[in-house]
């Protein structure tokens, strides 16, 4: 059972972790993340990296769709911009990974602003369709601008490097991906403690009133696009370093829907939800793979059904969560926590 604790200052009251219990749990969590690669086997390590990348991208999309209310079908395209930027830079410049990732994020953010420009005149679903158009154009550029993107064959990369260190294995990549993911989620959390985050939410809840209360809609919508696609760009860059190859098919439209699903399943407008959703959605295909492997001895056809089964599960999760639990996994998590915070004095 947790009891209330009084704060001495507004500063303490507005901290991310307000109670000592929370601080201890968070420290334990960070320690577990640090320890994980030393105890996990190769497969788990691989999954850990995938989840890390997905967490960054989902957090970005959550900022745009969950918090600002601008639905985007362009997330995969923005990730592609980041991925290709990193691939091109590593082939042509030999810059170390922090620089290439930063540039990947910035270029994606610039593209994001460009895509967000129609929000000057259109909103809601029309904007979603503008992002869809953007993803069509980006895919076209990835496939056709051969001198830069390598056409349909794509580009392959050298491993990420910094100060003579190279990060070739999943073990090495884990120590780039996961700290970055933690940092970027915390940065997003910070945004929502300040006026910028409040402006985003205000636009989502009532855009016209927000404007009359002093929020420049275009400015903040574009900022949300930029921030969101920056996250996507960095995630795409990490994706490129992790798989060491990017092709137009690395970033299909279905990937945009995957991230939208992660945001919905996790909980729109909730950063913890984004993390849960990213992990959940990344692990589902893996769980299905395990299940298929287990079933194959009895049903030899099982592997054929895996990919359509996955489509059905993704679709059903989107529909199911929207109808039955619109606040997503985050809400379920809070319910469990509320239960334990009063436990055992409540039945």
């Amino acid at each position: 059972m947790r009891i209330g604790d009084a704060k001495q200052s507004y500063e303490a009251d507005e901290a991310i972790l307000t109670s000592s219990t929370q601080k201890i749990w968070f420290a334990l969590f960070l320690f577990a993340l640090l320890l994980f690669p030393f105890v996990a086997d190769a497969y788990l390590l691989y999954l850990g990296c995938l989840v890390g990348i997905a967490v960054i991208s989902t957090t970005g999309l959550n900022i745009l769709t969950g918090f600002t209310g601008l639905i985007s079908l362009g997330q995969a395209g923005f990730m592609g911009v980041g991925g290709y930027t990193v691939a091109w830079l590593s082939a042509n410049t030999g810059l170390p990974f922090p620089v290439t990732l930063l540039l990947a994020g910035l270029l994606a953010a610039a593209v994001g602003i460009l895509v967000g420009l129609p929000s000057l005149r259109v909103k809601g679903l029309y904007l979603a369709i503008a992002t869809l158009a953007a993803s069509v154009f980006l895919h076209f550029i990835f496939a056709e601008w051969e001198s830069v993107t390598g056409g349909m064959g794509g580009l392959s990369l050298e491993p990420a490097h910094l100060f003579g260190l190279t990060f070739q294995s999943d073990f090495g990549m884990y120590f780039i991906i996961v700290p970055l993911a933690v940092l970027m989620v915390l940065a997003a959390k910070n945004v929502f403690r300040t006026r910028i985050g409040r402006a985003f939410i205000a636009i989502r809840d009532r855009d016209i009133s927000a404007e009359i209360l002093g929020i420049n809609l275009l400015h903040y919508k574009l900022m949300s696009f930029a921030l969101s696609s920056f996250y996507a760009g960095v995630a795409g860059g990490l994706f490129a370093y992790f798989f060491r190859v990017v092709t137009p098919e690395s970033f299909p439209l279905s990937m945009s829907i995957f991230y939208l699903a992660a945001v919905i399943v996790g909980g729109m407008g909730n950063l913890l939800g984004g993390i849960l959703g990213a992990a959940f959605m990344t692990l589902i295909p893996e769980a299905l793979k395990l299940l298929t492997a287990a079933l194959t001895p009895f049903y030899p056809n099982a592997p054929i059904f895996m990919s359509p089964m996955l489509e059905i599960i993704f679709g059903a999760l989107i529909v199911g969560f929207l109808i039955f639990e619109p606040h997503g996994l985050a809400e379920i998590w809070h319910r469990i926590r509320r239960f334990f915070s009063l436990w055992p004095f409540k039945n």
Partner: peptide, 25 residues
């Protein structure tokens, strides 16, 4: 704004008189 607490709703009113930018945030 239904997605925010009372405090955040009120703080939003101060938006126009605040200056901090994205990096600071």
């Amino acid at each position: 704004f239904r997605g925010m607490t009372v405090l955040d709703n009120i703080k939003l009113g101060a938006h126009v008189h605040m200056k901090s930018g994205l990096l600071g945030s």
